[in-house]
Design a protein around this nucleic acid. Structure first.
Lengths: 338, 338
DNA sequence: CTGTTAGCGCTTTCAG
DNA sequence: CTGAAAGCGCTAACAG
């Protein structure tokens, strides 16, 4: 049903109906009620495409992320979608699967005006970020979260990755580890570099030389990751502690330890970034750093709507670092970072 | 930039450009190339709202699910999005958070023609399914997956829940359990009822009377679930095996066992539906039944596109039960269902 | 093979 | 306070 047909049912004009549905102040209370009542009864909704075309606004945002089968990202989407639903916006989801080419294609596509704003976490392969700048030049607001980059001047949300890395490593050293390794999910990603800097800071504080052979630079290729971590662990007495910058690498390590008959946590203590629910009950030997994924999603979405609804310079280049939680050992200890 | 402005750059008409971009056969190769080259160079894309309005088609589907911070649903979305991307479709995501009211609001909203099809998993609270029928009456194709219902005549995808329940329970009995309990995530959900029927079948086969006091009917309220499961477990010697129909209930049980100092799997063996990555390495005592979530997503999306692109009766009321990759797994055993 | 034209359904002046 | 009419940008029918 079109707005014209609907209007005819009440013997008024389409313009009047449109004004009521858009809550214009120039309509009498009586007409308003008549329209709203019938709209409710018939579940009448104006055609969103016609409306978007005319207004040049879509009430839609895009979420561009590397993967979704991931406890961090799925919780972040949960937060994003909650804010979007509150604001009456719709959320389109796009997965890059860590591919630069896909990310580029998606972002270029988004320049067609299908969405009013973009929330993005950059893929592991991405080192050239100019496609995001192209969005900004088209006046499309964008907020980066978790996988941010330094090159783009826009709002960004991360956890305090340096401090988290520092605390994780310190925890391992305090637990008696002498040789603490580091599993990097990427050599270039900003978040991972910060986590590594925190790791190095904790070592430095205790006058421990950084041993590059204890640092495994992983990638998106799990086969290679497996063999690199395997190589590290099969050298007896090589490492007694491991700080993992990503959940999937920690899980991979559990698998390797199982095959090599390495006892966790007796022979090897692990602290990992992870958003697995109740990790400490399921696997009491896994200590986790939990990022506030849901809150980060909400925060990122809130900032995006701010800049969709207000002029751009309100938010430009804000950098927010959120506090994360370090859960250690079956929830008897819980160290808050910061 | 509009298609008219773009056409002027090449001194041709907007219609011609439109035909090229929609791959019409009535355009010369030369013109085609000129248009495509410039479009590539300028990243020109026609306004999607104008196009959708004119065509009355959106190249967009909706995914309506209870929650996303969930290993099953996030993997399913992964599969859905993959097929959608291949088909050049966009995916809108809507979360009901298990609320009937929210589901109703979302589905009613979708009747405005914003999407060309709907993929849905019904919420736990939903017992009246007529809103889905309203969609079908508006000629909007819909495919239900995992949380399906019997009341709607449309395509549905589930796992073989009866057989999975049977195998899980049989596995516990074969492992020497005498008193096997069942954690139901819902009393009414079709999938859960089937899992329970499988559970009862396995008991019956071994001439074991069903003991209702070993069946915990859980809900979406985790506080109540906690106390009900706690009550069951704190009675010593009450149960020595537990089949959980949902991952979150199993994790809750791990927490309770930790507090009650119940040794898993010595005192209590657990088999649970779960899509946690490498559950058996992380927590070797947890045996899982893994649903082929990714494949179910792909299958559901494929069926949806079939019915979007072809007349409706092609797919009406097909019921697919997926069997591949459904197995009880712990580190040592992997039992394939069917 | 290419161009002209009408109109998708809505919102927004502007006139009354 | 209400309505008439223009036009958002595109595509499809039709003419040439």
């Amino acid at each position: 049903m079109t707005i014209k047909e609907f209007a005819k049912l009440l013997n008024i004009s389409a313009a009047t109906v449109s004004k009521v549905l858009n809550d214009s102040h120039e309509i009498s209370a009586v007409t308003k009620k008549r329209v709203l009542d019938l709209a409710e009864e018939l579940n009448f909704q104006p055609n969103p495409n016609a409306s978007s075309l005319r207004r040049n606004k879509n009430k839609t945002i895009a979420i561009v992320i590397p993967e979704i089968a991931n406890n961090f990202f799925s919780k972040a989407i949960d937060g994003i979608e909650m804010i979007a639903q509150q604001k009456g916006y719709h959320s389109l989801i796009y997965l890059t699967h860590e591919s630069f080419t896909k990310e580029l294609g998606i972002v270029k596509h988004l320049m067609n005006g299908r969405v009013d704003g973009v929330l993005a976490s950059v893929s592991l392969e991405t080192t050239d970020f100019s496609h995001f700048n192209d969005l900004l030049e088209k006046n499309l607001p964008i907020v980066l979260f978790d996988r941010v980059c330094e090159e783009i001047q826009t709002a960004k949300i991360t956890t305090d990755d340096f401090h988290a890395g520092y605390m994780a490593t310190k925890h391992l050293l305090d637990s008696g580890c002498k040789k603490v390794g580091f599993l990097a999910f990427s050599e270039v990603a900003y978040a991972c570099r910060k986590r590594k800097e925190g790791y190095m800071e904790a070592l430095k504080e205790q006058n421990i030389e950084v041993d590059d052979s204890l640092i495994v630079n992983c990638s998106n290729d799990m086969i290679t990751n497996f063999s690199m971590i395997n190589n590290l662990l099969k050298k007896k007495k090589k490492v007694d502690g491991l700080f993992s910058s990503a959940e999937n690498l920690a899980i991979l390590t559990y698998q390797i330890c199982s095959e090599l008959a390495i006892n966790i946590p007796k022979d090897l203590k692990i602290v990992s970034f992870s958003n697995m629910p109740m990790a400490s009950y399921l696997s009491p030997s896994l200590s986790t750093i939990t990022q506030p994924a849901f809150e980060m999603g909400k925060e990122a979405a809130t900032m995006l709507f701010l800049s969709i609804e207000k002029p751009r310079n309100n938010y430009k280049d804000v950098f927010t670092e959120m506090k994360s939680n370090l859960f250690v050992r079956n929830s008897t200890k819980r160290l808050f970072l910061k």
